[in-house]
């Protein structure tokens, strides 16, 4: 049986330059950079609003969004995130990297990995709202326009990551 060999990854610097050009275009055409966590918040706010509108409007994080946007599909970041998903899918299929699996280190079980991933996701989303941005919105786009907050955020992410990497080595190695 012939297994499809995955293509090698691109040179990271080429990806970086490509992303940089993308960010420049984004600023020129729309006046703002990219984003990710905003789209998640928007989709969540709209979904909750469809099910329980009173609850959605009672929470500042959601009502701020809902009062500013008519429909999530008319929000720039939401459409962008949809594009990211499509792009990832296209690239994954074309490069032979599409596979249903759970990525984890060899020393832990699938369940552990899923639990840790869930908790990590909670931490990340919480922190991203705290800092008003995630890596794509704050670090990438903010760094390009030299926002001090973006640089502070990036340095803190690396500090936070490196300090717990040793403790969490069992997850990955």
């Amino acid at each position: 049986m012939k297994t499809k060999q995955a293509y090698p990854y691109w040179n990271p610097y080429i990806v970086g330059v490509g992303l940089g050009i993308l960010i420049i275009l984004s600023f020129v055409v729309t006046g703002r950079g990219l984003g990710a966590i905003g789209a998640f918040n928007g989709l969540l706010a709209s979904a909750i609003h469809a099910i329980a509108p009173d609850y959605a409007m009672s929470k500042a994080a959601f009502s701020n969004y809902l009062s500013g946007v008519e429909h999530p599909l008319r929000d720039w970041v939401v459409i962008e995130i949809v594009g990211v998903c499509i792009g990832g899918l296209i690239s994954g299929v074309v490069s032979g990297r599409f596979k249903f699996e759970v990525l984890k280190g060899p020393r832990i079980s699938n369940v552990t990995r899923l639990i840790v991933a869930f908790s990590g996701g909670v931490l990340m989303a919480f922190a991203a709202k705290f800092t008003r941005g995630c890596t794509s919105g704050l670090a990438l786009s903010g760094g390009s326009v030299m926002s001090p907050g973006a640089w502070l955020f990036m340095i803190s992410v690396f500090i936070g990551g490196y300090s717990v990497a040793f403790l969490m080595r069992k997850l990955w190695n």
Binding site: T30, L34, I37, V69, R132, C134, G137
Partner: peptide, 10 residues
């Protein structure tokens, strides 16, 4: 001025 609808997050 280019305004984005919702600026609190990105």
């Amino acid at each position: 001025v280019r305004e984005s609808r919702y600026r609190e997050g990105c």
